[in-house]
Amino acid sequence: MRITKNEARRRLRERGLRVTAPRLAVLGILANAEGPMSFTQVLDLLGDSDWDQATIYRNLVKLREAGLAPVVSRVDGIDRYALAGDHEDAHRHPHFLCEDCGRVACLKEEIAAALSIDGPWAESIRSAMVQLLGHCPDCLARADA
């Protein structure tokens, strides 16, 4: 989900946050990400910036608290963030962690639909964080080669 700087500014203001360069940079990284991003991955993509690690971490926390960058995966105990969509539950789907390369990928909605149930557990299942562990298609292909 790509967003413009103006869209990022609007989202920050709507959530009562000041518009700062580090916040815009972090939102931009999350918007361009193919999957959930850890704090370390965000730092790596920021490269050689003028901001220290604590500043970036505090901004991730502020964005999470404001609902703009929820933690959507905690595979291996590492918080991974994603840019929130326009709907509160926009990133509620299973994630897959590759045991070989460490990639965390968003899985298709069909998998989430298969987990849909009715009854007393329905709301718990809808709000649960589902994470699968295994070998991604790329790593499987390399192992077969």
Rank of each mutant, 00 (worst) to 15 (best):
E65Q: 15
E65M: 15
E65K: 15
E65A: 15
G67F: 14
G67D: 14
G67L: 15
G67I: 13
A69E: 05
P70L: 10
P70D: 08
P70A: 11
P70H: 09
V71A: 06
V72E: 01
R74L: 12
R74E: 10
R74D: 03
V75K: 06
V75E: 06
V75M: 09
G77P: 06
G77D: 08
G77S: 07
D79S: 13
Y81R: 03
Y81G: 03
A82E: 08
A82K: 03
A84Q: 11
G85A: 12
G85Y: 06
G85C: 08
D86W: 09
H87K: 13
D89W: 09
D89Y: 12
D89L: 14
A90C: 10
A90D: 14
H91V: 11
H91D: 11
H91L: 14
R92N: 10
R92I: 12
H93C: 07
H93Y: 14
P94L: 06
P94R: 04
P94Q: 02
H95M: 05
H95I: 00
F96N: 00
L97E: 01
E99Y: 05
G102V: 04
R103F: 00
A105L: 10
E109A: 14
I111G: 01
A112I: 00
A113L: 14
A114V: 05
L115P: 03
L115Q: 10
L115E: 07
I117E: 10
D118E: 14
D118K: 10
G119E: 09
P120Q: 12
P120R: 11
